[in-house]
Design a protein around this nucleic acid. Structure first.
Lengths: 195, 195
DNA sequence: AACAGAATTCATCATGCGTAGAGTTCTACG
DNA sequence: CGTAGAACTCTACGCATGATGAATTCTGTT
């Protein structure tokens, strides 16, 4: 049909592939998404993906690169003091997920973490080292590891319940509704008495 | 190699297939596990799986059949009153997961729920209708749906953090250590003030 | 104007998949 | 015994997959 050879002008093919890949991976996970499906979605020949990224694994890697730096979030959250920290964490979390176009990379990370052992390790690393532990240490109440883990459990649970299982009314609640519900839990995990 | 035809004696082939299937599905999810791999693991011809179960979907269904009745748990938990309910839920949850041989069906359910849209629906149904909502209604403080959803979020989060992401020290903590940490959260979601 | 190299298509390979069907051997029941 | 049917193996089909290599067309630099 279409002739071979380079197209004139600036075709944002690479980006189109990445977008389609994120969509696919976040919807069906790594194995559930074929290169051909991604190519079809992106309106592109399958071989182009190999051409650009080398392999499916490399594409996956590239698609999961987060568009934001989670490390930058921590000082921002801590800047306003410990009061209402839990509340602000809930809001920040929801803002990131709901704000990310199509929730692509986020859901993809979660989905693949649950299936792919390597991804689970990477997500654990990212979550604990860059995000949760700094938060818990910033709170300065000791037991940083434990507090970070508890925080992770409630935050991950929110993600699963809201975005994967879509349990109502959690799934369609607004940040204003959720913050006072979950905030106190996080606050206690971070700054409260534990035993 | 091996001759065709029926083997003498009682070969627990069906069970072997189910075991291998649970192992596979819980380790790599639905798509990530092939019938041939299951058959190899079970030391069995792939066609036997079709013979016994009809299709991969049906096998999946059969492998996920829970060995326990979650509905029976609720009255047990509620029987001892509302005091310490959260605590008891944490303990029951851990007992079920840690007690289930190989955590097979449990992890498989979680893993596939995250990948497979249908499984997500089934898990949501099971969780909310049979387990969480009866609990929240049994607590009798109103807002049963919302309380059930919040409960789900913390419980699912515990599962993900402990069994999938394996975040320490959550992953290797005992029930006695976790109950006082997470119990109050669940207690508040079920019986506490919400807004 | 020439040319290296990037972008793109196509045809193709080997592999693995889920499933179906035919054939063989054993068991259970009459 | 005889025979229905369950347990089991083998072969094969059609399809999708990830990857490769050659061919073609455009772009940027000299």
């Amino acid at each position: 049909m279409s002739p071979a050879g380079r197209r004139p002008g600036d075709s944002g093919t690479r980006e189109a592939i990445l977008t389609a890949a994120r969509e696919g991976f976040s919807a069906a996970g790594y194995r559930g998404t074929s290169l051909r499906a991604i190519a079809r979605e992106a309106g592109v020949d399958p071989a182009l993906i190999t051409h650009y990224f080398g392999s499916k694994d490399a594409l996956f890697e590239a698609a999961l690169a987060l568009p934001l730096d989670p490390g930058a979030l921590v000082p921002l959250l801590l800047a306003e003091g410990l009061d209402g920290l839990g509340d602000r964490i809930v809001r920040a979390f929801l803002a990131v997920w709901d704000g990310t176009p199509g929730q692509g990379p986020m859901l993809a990370m979660l989905r693949s973490a649950v299936t792919h052992e390597d991804s689970a390790e990477r997500l654990r690393e990212l979550l604990t080292r860059v995000l949760l532990r700094p938060l818990a240490e910033g709170a300065g109440k000791g037991d940083a590891e434990l507090r970070a883990a508890l925080l992770a459990s409630q935050v991950a649970g929110l993600a699963v319940a809201r975005y994967v299982l879509k349990i109502e009314p959690l799934a369609s609640a607004t940040a204003d509704q959720l913050a006072p519900l979950l905030g106190p839990t996080l606050q206690r995990y971070l700054t409260g008495a534990l035993a």
